[in-house]
Design a binder for these strands. Structure first.
Lengths: 193, 193
DNA sequence: ATGCGACTGACACGACTGTTTCAGTAGCGG
DNA sequence: CCGCTACTGAAACAGTCGTGTCAGTCGCAT
């Protein structure tokens, strides 16, 4: 009946990709199978067949978004060389966050984050906590070794993460790129070398 | 037919208060009239009568939440005396944000924020942008005068807001009060007097 | 050719949605 | 008592939701 989860099947990834693009535009909150299916040239029946039920589809979409996110984050300090330091890493992350093209993904991210806080069960479960952990881990990997494991190092990356996320919220709401980027730069200068 | 909007009517505020408590627990995303009505001892018919339609109710609820928020923020520097400075103000704001009892309100806030980003029309319209403006205005009022109107002053309050909001997101997801408060304190020390 | 697995279309089921209609009831000023 | 305003109950409307059922069509290995 339902296809093997370990083998995502060509058709499955194809439809998932289309659904992902659709969700980036329309949001996840009031996602409905019938409009989605007609928009991507499919049918609710097929989506049910490929993803089990709506929760399965939502889970797959969230995982897909997380993939996008992690792909970018990994490209930072993970180039194989030695760590580039927390401040340069945060600077690059902000440069990526502030790009206009990434805004749909980031709006989706905020939506999923808020939703998973209110409704900790179901498809959204643990999304917020997972991304906090993801980002902290990546930032930690960018810190040189004496700092990385220190108490102060943990505080500094918590701080960097908070500034980046707070600035992101501001940017998504107001779009005032200049004011916010100035503030982020100011902060990174404060945070030292 | 529909009651005057300028006169909220005793029964109206009574039901709004009950609905507000309900929404703090259950979230706004999948709010439905019938469960809400039975939970607060009313009926969909009455809610429609008092608030016009569901959007009117949601708008009233968001306005109610914003009232809670502003009531606290105004209690900071607005005591009538001279401004207390940005850093002490941010410190007090964080003290309030980190209180466990306020968590339902703040979860609701994040949910509404994300939703208004994805769906800029309807009842949620402008909620995110409005709260950014609210908070920045309050923080500005806490800054002494030479700083308040300066370019640097604007940068500093944008930064303070970003840190508070980013830290709030972290706290709501992980609940790791100690780690995050340490980071906020560290930041406020950096931000100087 | 045959059979099997992947995929799909059409349709209906029951539950739930916001909203409306019709019919009231309680209180209160005249 | 009248009439008016504020509020309420019961039921039904049309629509959408996720999901299930039954059938059918491909492509490909045997």
């Amino acid at each position: 009946m339902s296809p093997d989860r370990t083998t995502p099947s060509a058709r499955q990834v194809e439809l998932l990709e289309a659904a992902y693009q659709y969700v980036l535009d329309h949001g996840l909150a009031d996602l409905s199978l019938r409009p989605l299916a007609t928009a991507i040239g499919s049918s609710p029946r097929v989506l049910m067949f490929l993803f089990g039920n709506k929760d399965g589809l939502v889970r797959a979409l969230l995982a897909r978004a997380r993939t996008d996110e992690l792909a970018i984050l990994d490209r930072l300090g993970q180039a194989g060389q030695e760590p580039i330091g927390l401040v340069p890493a945060a600077d690059r992350v902000w440069a990526w966050l502030a790009v206009d093209e990434h805004r749909p993904l980031l709006r989706l991210w905020v939506e999923a984050y808020g939703r998973s806080l209110v409704e900790p069960d179901g498809a959204w479960a643990g999304f917020a906590r997972a991304t906090v952990h993801d980002w902290l881990a990546v930032l930690a990997a960018c810190q040189p070794q004496p700092e990385r494991d220190s108490q102060e190092g943990a505080t500094r990356r918590t701080l960097a993460l908070a500034v980046l996320r707070g600035a992101l919220l501001d940017l998504l709401a107001t779009g005032e790129h200049r004011r916010i980027t100035t503030a982020v730069r100011h902060q990174l200068a404060l945070l030292g070398p």
